[in-house]
Design a protein around this nucleic acid. Sequence first.
DNA 1: TCCGGGACTTAGAATAATTTCC
DNA 2: GGAAATTATTCTAAGTCCCGGA
Length: 949
Amino acid sequence: MSAPEPMAVVAPNLGSSASTLASRAPEVVSRAPRGRPDDSDDDEEMPLARKANGAKPNGGGGGGTAKRVVESSSEDEKPLSKKPRVSTTKRRIVDSEDEESEAGPSSSPAVPVKKEAPPTPQANGKPRSNKVVKPASDSDLSEDDKPLASKASKPASKPRSSTNANGNGNGNGVAKPKAKPKKPVSESDDLSDEESSYSDESDDKPLAKKAKPAPAPKAAPAKPRKSDSATPTAKPKPSAKAVKKLKSEPTSSEDEDEVPLAKKAAPTTKGKAKDVKKEVVKVKKEKKGQEEDEEEEKYKWWENEAMGDGSVKWTTLEHQAVLFPPPYIPLPKGIKMKYDGVPLTLPPESEEVAGFFGAMLETDHAQDAKFRENFFKDFKEILASFPPASFPLPISKQPAGWEDVKVKSLDKCDFRPMFDHFEREREKKKAMTKDEKKAVKEAKDKLEAPYLLALVDGRKEKVGNFRAEPPGLFRGRGEHPKKGTLKKRLRPEDILLNIGKDAQVPKANIPGEWKGVQHDSTVTWLAHWKENVNGNSKYVFLSAGSSWKGQSDRQKFEKARELIKHIDRIRKDYTEDLKSKVMADRQRATALYFIDKLALRAGNEKGEDEADTVGCCSLRYEHVTLEPPNRVIFDFLGKDSMRFHQEVEVDKQVFKNIKIFKDNKTRGDDIFDRLNTTLLNNHLRAQMPGLSAKVFRTYNASWTFQQQLKNTPKKGTVQEKIAAYNTANREVAILCNHQKTVSKTFADSFAKMGDKVSPSAQVPADETPIPALHARAEGEETARRVGGDESDMDEEFMERHEADLLEKATEAAKKKWEKENLKLAEEKEDTKPKSVLDERLKEIKAEFKELARERKTKKVEPRKGATEEKLLEQISKMDDRIAAARVQMEDRDKTKDVALGTSKINYIDPRLTVAWARKYEVPLEKLFSKTLREKFPWAEAEADADWVF
DNA sequence: TCCGGGACTTAGAATAATTTCC
DNA sequence: GGAAATTATTCTAAGTCCCGGA
């Protein structure tokens, strides 16, 4: 078959989050679970790969009783920050009749009707099986097909600038290809036949994109182009782009007659800034009711006819620019870092930098070699300019030649006194009274108030990141070659403002003049600067809830919806091109196949001074391994150095192609040497206006979500419906490889939950454990049947549990007695003597002794007032609680390393959520936080219960 | 055509706020 | 009521994509 068929929707309970579990199978160190009700189901649905690998059905502790889960794999024991997180998944993206039948009735129809059922991405095409990642035996595979892990250990011919601490074989630790030339797209690329005998001919001209010279040192970053003409005094010339756009734009802010009403109505320029401030303070102080009134005033841009991306974004623009952090306040006199055991008196300039490191002492960064190296280089530099004043010791006690002592080794630097000081300060802050905290908050609010809002064409809009980034140490992700570098303090001289011509130029809150002021109405940023570490541009934009961001968000999703109309044709085209005789076309088609099916990012070229991460177009030889007949294993670090590790079964032609593309290449070589993101996107734009690689991610994410939501139980409780919603969300997050660090407290809290699932733990401290309860209600037989046999309680467990309860009850009684006495003392009444407490403790002890006796003799006396009915009701409630806790536990486990937020914020059309909430009568606030509702007001206005993507 | 870089979106970590637990 | 856990928000790094100049 040639055209990819639509892919089946995956069963929600088999998402690959579980695969992640399997790949990092936590070790169960306590007893195995007994008779979990859903074990059998799990087993039945467990993908073969998992079964074959002996993965535990529930990902290692999901439903067992009182299991202690210990993250025990060597990988898991490494510091999180050093460890690229894994999305290890096996999936199948090849389509076959076989698959269709497996997929069952939930498969999307092959030919969509109108907006229906374009094929969904593979994430949902088939239950993704899980695989425990284990090193394959090298001898099983040819050199090329060896798993990356084993290859990684091979010494690279050329050392990379950075290595992967995890040694996971993502290509880190291997020479990063130095601008390997790509081949030209020319007729000479023609493949003679389908199998192709393509070879890397020497006369092929490389694609120029790769040959990037090493960047020059960025000590003095170049000014932004637009600022070249921008000075604080003279009005700069708008950028060429702006001029061009403005020329074609009839609305000119210079034309007095055409000044929009909003502007005319606005107060005079001088008074405007004050007015903005006043408004801000007012907004901050207003209570809920008033806020609701404000709501109504909000600009509903989505109701306007003329929406869309005209090049001119505003006519008038007023704002307060950026808020600089307060200047550095030197530490108290006694707080000093030490060098070689000797306290150093540092001038504020170098003390501040020392403090940056000191504050991070307990983080993984401070242990990271590259981070330390970069920090120390910059620290030494600042020390050279601002050296220690002297050692604060009497002259007689100074070490010999102390004047010449130089800070030469980071290992001899002791920042602990600084760290301890920061900790104490933090504790102090925590211990502040409510009023003190309130006062601090009020002061902060007052300071920030003027910066919160901007006036865009007379409308109030929230500003996003108005704070100038404070100085610190650069926290690059993954193996970033610059991590630890000093990020310098910004001054007004670094900041270029973009503001309305007639607006008052704000004054900075620290001394200094702005770098420049421009009035470019074709852009949406308010302030710009270049950071010193990488020379990257930073901007102040309006907040996510602003009309500018809202409009562009909506356009993004509309573009993704437009793709629905073209997707069949595009898929057909690239499927045909998989066999193209032109190498460039064949590579493009193959890349597109991956972008579409696996939701890979485009993969722009990256520089030497960045972390070595890749996307589709920049995949290299070592990132893709082939396993005949048609299995492809991806293992690479993507955006933010997140590991992408998946095994997929692909179309045979795709498999063949990759084999061809890898031919005659070696580690470090690009797989797609005739392709880059520009070529790919140019092609896509020709297929559909405005189409680019990233649109596929949006489209596939939203489409998948819509399909997944069909699994919502119509008659379920709100909780059950939300669980279905979250499952759908999770599938999308997995598809997009959105990961998060497993929280450090996860193992503990998961174990606690495990205890909860135990029936006996459901019994409050002052109540009788279930078996006894059952026994009292129905006699021993029932107790064994209901409580004893079905639960996971054995003698040893019960003993331990009772001991726990006794301890808790004793503690509670003591606290109660103390509290009562405290109160009595306050009221100047006689306190209760110790004998009262002793009496109570005696009673508690006796009760537990009785319990133990009942357990041992299995003879139980019904308690006062305990009727069979009451006790059965209690049992039933407990069973419900246990069931709910189990569901919650599984959910928690599946989501522990999957970040749901990113897809909800960026990829899932919010109208889907709104429509679903309306259809299933779930309050929207249970799905969208306050900020998300502020971000998506247009979705609430547009989507009714029947809205479809 | 190539390349640099401007402008914007997307991303996980860090931190703050809120809720739950004891 | 305070501590711990959880959730929401903020922060800023790291992507994408496209434009314009050489």
